[in-house]
């Protein structure tokens, strides 16, 4: 499974990577992007099955990235992981095509439940 983690925080990217690889034991090919521009550039080069996307980033925000993914019809399933827990933020990302919204701080249990509910993992 090809996964792209997009977050301006190195700690956050490391945390998500750790959950996916160690807690969920996913066999993944993981890429990381520290901002929206980098994420779009990576998605142009190669496809991703899943994208874990932060919203509040310098430059292109997560909202912008979602719009771009939609506009260019990239096939990745996007899960937004964000500290922006406003109801309208959640509604907006879902309307822009995100599969789900997970509030930060992210923990293994919640991520597992969400991925299971979307049929991405079976355990």
């Amino acid at each position: 499974m090809k996964i792209l983690i997009v977050d301006d925080s190195k700690m956050s990217r490391r945390l998500i990577r750790g959950i996916l690889e160690q807690d969920l034991n996913l066999q993944t090919e993981l890429r990381e992007a520290s901002n929206g521009q980098e994420a779009i550039a990576l998605l142009e080069k190669e496809t991703a099955d899943l994208v874990f996307l932060d919203l509040t980033m310098p430059g292109l925000s997560g909202f912008d990235v979602l719009e771009e993914i939609k506009r260019r019809s990239f096939q990745a399933q996007v899960f937004v992981l964000s500290a922006d827990i406003q109801t309208k933020a959640r509604e907006k990302v879902l309307s822009l095509g995100a599969k789900d919204f997970i509030a930060k701080p992210v923990c293994a249990q919640v991520l597992r439940e969400v991925l299971r509910s979307h049929g991405i993992i079976n355990e």
Partner: peptide, 20 residues
């Protein structure tokens, strides 16, 4: 600073939600 930034980010998100 990166780690502290993420901690602040989460706190800011809560405050933003309250404001909203």
């Amino acid at each position: 600073l990166d780690a502290f930034g993420e901690i602040v980010n989460i706190a800011m998100g809560q405050a933003g939600s309250l404001l909203a």
